[in-house]
Computed example of a mutant assay.
Amino acid sequence: MITYIGLLNFTEKGIQSIKDTTKRAAAAKEVAKKFGVNMREIFWTMGDCDMVCVLEAEDETSLSAFNLAVAVQGNVRTRSLRAYNASEMDKILGKLP
């Protein structure tokens, strides 16, 4: 599984129904499974992003399809970052001259 960090911001629609945000997150977690994505952690944050998620997916297309499924609901805008754990980073560094 590939690890990603999801950075989310509420849209106007999402902020208008903010009281449902935890319910929407739980529903998104279930939808994610249909795309082969595991939402490992969901955090509501203060600062540049309203939410941060740790996700695992089999490939980029699975994550992209899930992100689009979330986007069409109109409550959040998402950005995804590929994340590497220490052993994955060691493999990358091993390729350096």
Rank of each mutant, 00 (worst) to 15 (best):
residue 93 L to R: 11
residue 45 T to A: 04
residue 86 A to Y: 07
residue 12 E to R: 06
residue 46 M to I: 00
residue 79 R to C: 13
residue 4 Y to G: 00
residue 3 T to C: 11
residue 83 A to D: 02
residue 84 Y to T: 07
residue 87 S to V: 14
residue 42 I to M: 09
residue 35 F to W: 00
residue 45 T to D: 03
residue 41 E to M: 12
residue 50 D to H: 07
residue 41 E to C: 04
residue 48 D to L: 14
residue 15 I to F: 04
residue 72 V to I: 02
residue 92 I to T: 14
residue 13 K to P: 06
residue 80 S to F: 08
residue 45 T to P: 08
residue 59 D to F: 06
residue 25 A to F: 09
residue 22 T to S: 14
residue 55 L to E: 05
residue 1 M to T: 10
residue 5 I to A: 04
residue 90 D to M: 07
residue 79 R to E: 15
residue 32 A to I: 02
residue 49 C to H: 11
residue 37 V to N: 05
residue 43 F to W: 14
residue 80 S to T: 04
residue 41 E to H: 14
residue 74 G to E: 06
residue 58 E to N: 04
residue 35 F to K: 03
residue 52 V to W: 06
residue 68 L to G: 09
residue 3 T to F: 12
residue 91 K to E: 15
residue 96 L to F: 01
residue 74 G to C: 03
residue 58 E to Y: 01
residue 74 G to V: 09
residue 80 S to A: 10
residue 97 P to V: 05
residue 32 A to D: 01
residue 36 G to P: 00
residue 39 M to D: 05
residue 1 M to R: 12
residue 76 V to E: 08
residue 52 V to A: 00
residue 83 A to H: 04
residue 43 F to Y: 14
residue 46 M to E: 08
residue 75 N to L: 01
residue 20 D to F: 09
residue 33 K to N: 03
residue 71 A to I: 09
residue 84 Y to I: 09
residue 33 K to R: 15
residue 97 P to W: 10
residue 39 M to Q: 03
residue 56 E to R: 09
residue 32 A to R: 06
residue 51 M to Q: 11
residue 29 K to G: 14
residue 23 K to A: 10
residue 51 M to S: 15
residue 46 M to H: 03
residue 94 G to A: 09
residue 70 V to N: 08
residue 65 A to L: 12
residue 13 K to L: 09
residue 10 F to G: 10
residue 51 M to A: 13
residue 80 S to P: 07
residue 51 M to K: 05
residue 28 A to G: 11
residue 53 C to W: 14
residue 24 R to P: 06
residue 28 A to Q: 11
residue 32 A to Q: 08
residue 75 N to C: 04
residue 66 F to V: 03
residue 14 G to Q: 00
residue 92 I to P: 06
residue 17 S to R: 12
residue 19 K to C: 00
residue 89 M to D: 09
residue 76 V to S: 05
residue 59 D to Y: 02
residue 4 Y to F: 15
residue 60 E to A: 10
residue 6 G to D: 05
residue 52 V to M: 08
residue 72 V to R: 00
residue 9 N to M: 11
residue 66 F to S: 04
residue 50 D to N: 07
residue 53 C to T: 09
residue 27 A to S: 15
residue 39 M to P: 02
residue 64 S to N: 08
residue 44 W to I: 06
residue 20 D to Y: 12
residue 12 E to C: 01
residue 63 L to S: 08
residue 57 A to S: 09
residue 93 L to H: 11
residue 48 D to W: 10
residue 56 E to L: 04
residue 4 Y to K: 13
residue 29 K to W: 11
residue 35 F to V: 02
residue 66 F to G: 00
residue 25 A to C: 10
residue 70 V to T: 11
residue 18 I to G: 02
residue 56 E to V: 02
residue 3 T to R: 13
residue 5 I to L: 03
residue 40 R to N: 15
residue 36 G to Y: 07
residue 11 T to A: 02
residue 5 I to T: 03
residue 56 E to I: 04
residue 88 E to W: 13
residue 82 R to M: 07
